[in-house]
Design a protein around this nucleic acid. Structure first.
Lengths: 230, 230
DNA sequence: TAGATTGTTAATCGATTAACAATC
DNA sequence: TAGATTGTTAATCGATTAACAATC
């Protein structure tokens, strides 16, 4: 009775590839907007900011959706990648913590356009309740369980201060959420089987700072070398 | 005459390690807050959410800052990592695009506390000028060049819509900025030597969606197997 | 058939991990 | 000296890349 999906090769896509599929998807949408119907791996790779060997290798994990000598059909490949990621279905999402960042996330159009539907905004602060944000009213955090159950929410977004994040994650997991996107600058501990992805704004800046510093140091050394040879 | 810095081993830290240094830094700050003065690689690794072998390997690229049989001095290691990343100095930053996300970024306390100083908020929309955000007034985008020059800005943050981002990046580069943190959902092309890091909110959600879908598919297969064996 | 471009192979590179000698 | 824990080695794993046979 075991009904396998039509494409067994779809299993076990390397993480590095998974992380790039959304980038390819966006590049394909840009091409489609410009009414380009076909593209080569070279063209798509350039639009996505990667090299074409990597692109072809990545796509080879999904299946064989191109035509040798011709390239890829933009719309067909777009659909296949969307299906692979799971964007052909609707993903109900809750956002907890409606401060500045929560506002920004609730209003972010990139979510809705990719099939993510914000079903609720939650905040522990009663002062925020019934405020409307992005057309959705802010509800008490204690409504989490009922909202998750009623809407079959699988993805939770944490946009609270760091000290509240672990509690929120615990409650989310208890309510049945298995995937968490964490914007709070803290390490969450969750049971096996729960996925956490972290976006940390200040860490990105710190990585940049490291490289700025290195560039400055390299420039100094170079100046010294010139001085030496003079 | 070439004056090398005291620690030549500080050069050529692997990218993967650089990306984790800020995580260690944050973990050390948490330990320091709890007035813990010494920690083992095991304890620090656990606080940072990595395994201890990786932590020790990472730290070994910076130098030898621990004591065998004892562990690491929290404050000393914190300082060494901060120095390595370049956080012992002040980094002037400009933010362009003061929509929801720009607001959130301008108000984000994690920047200031790590030595990033927002010297200006810029927006092309005259309707937003002279509005105060996070105690800084919003200025015209055309002030970019003079602000960069006056404040020695090396890092620019782009929080504009996608269609404006490339223009903003071009102007930033022309003004002398060599490191860009891009929140706009688009691939930027910049000259060699300019660093771009990208934070894409919807891509993170899409990666999560892929894993949710996989978990659901795996659960189905398992149910089928049980049915078969029944 | 000739030209173009994919999908795959195999080599290379970088990151992770376990194990342990060095040493406090 | 005995116990603890670092820093390093070496093995393994996964990702990237160039090259090219397959094939439209």
């Amino acid at each position: 009775m075991t009904a396998r999906t039509s494409n067994d090769s779809a299993r076990d896509i390397p993480e590095a590839t998974v992380a790039r599929l959304p980038v390819y998807l966006r590049a394909l949408m840009t091409l489609a907007e410009r009414e380009i119907e076909t593209c080569s791996s070279e063209e798509l790779a350039s639009a996505a900011g990667v090299n074409s060997a990597k692109l072809r290798k990545d796509l080879s994990h999904l299946g064989s959706y191109g035509t040798r000598g011709v390239g890829y059909d933009v719309e067909y490949l777009r659909y296949q990648i969307a299906r692979e990621i799971g964007l052909t279905q609707d993903w109900p999402v809750v956002i907890v913590g409606i401060g500045n960042l929560g506002h920004a996330l609730a209003n972010y159009s990139g979510f809705r356009s990719r099939g993510f539907r914000v079903v609720a905004l939650l905040d522990a602060d009663p002062g925020r309740h019934d405020e409307m944000v992005a057309g959705i009213d802010v509800r008490p955090f204690d409504d989490l369980e009922s909202i998750v159950a009623e809407n079959d929410v699988a993805i939770g977004v944490i946009a609270t201060p760091a000290n509240a994040a672990q509690d929120v994650a615990d409650r989310m997991v208890a309510a049945g959420i298995t995937s968490v996107l964490n914007f709070a600058p803290t390490v969450l501990s969750v049971p096996e089987g729960v996925d956490v992805r972290k976006v940390d704004l200040s860490i990105e800046l710190q990585i940049l700072a490291y490289h700025v510093q290195r560039k400055a140091a390299a420039a100094l050394v170079e100046a010294d070398v010139e001085e030496d040879s003079a």
